[in-house]
């Protein structure tokens, strides 16, 4: 997986009825956009390191050309 600061990562719910969860990438700690990422979780504001598995997908942040 590759991500950039500002991207959102969505983790699919594991069981029927379990909601998806999402977090925002604050820092990229690996080379060339690779994990781990420092992320902030949804509304809770908790910051953690995140190591994506096969249940995670990246939603790219819209970037305005400079």
């Amino acid at each position: 997986m590759q991500a950039s600061v500002g991207d959102r990562i969505v983790i699919r719910g594991r069981r029927a009825g379990e909601p998806n969860r999402d977090c925002e990438v604050l820092e990229v700690h690996g080379p060339n956009g690779s994990p781990p990422y420092l992320v902030r979780w949804g509304d809770s504001g908790h910051e953690t390191l995140f190591f994506p598995g096969t249940d995670a997908t990246v939603n790219r942040a819209e970037r305005t050309p400079s």
């Binding site: 390191l49 995140f50 190591f51 598995g53």
Partner: peptide, 9 residues
Amino acid sequence: GVRRSGVGI
């Protein structure tokens, strides 16, 4: 074989 994402603190 790792199916779920990991979280570290």
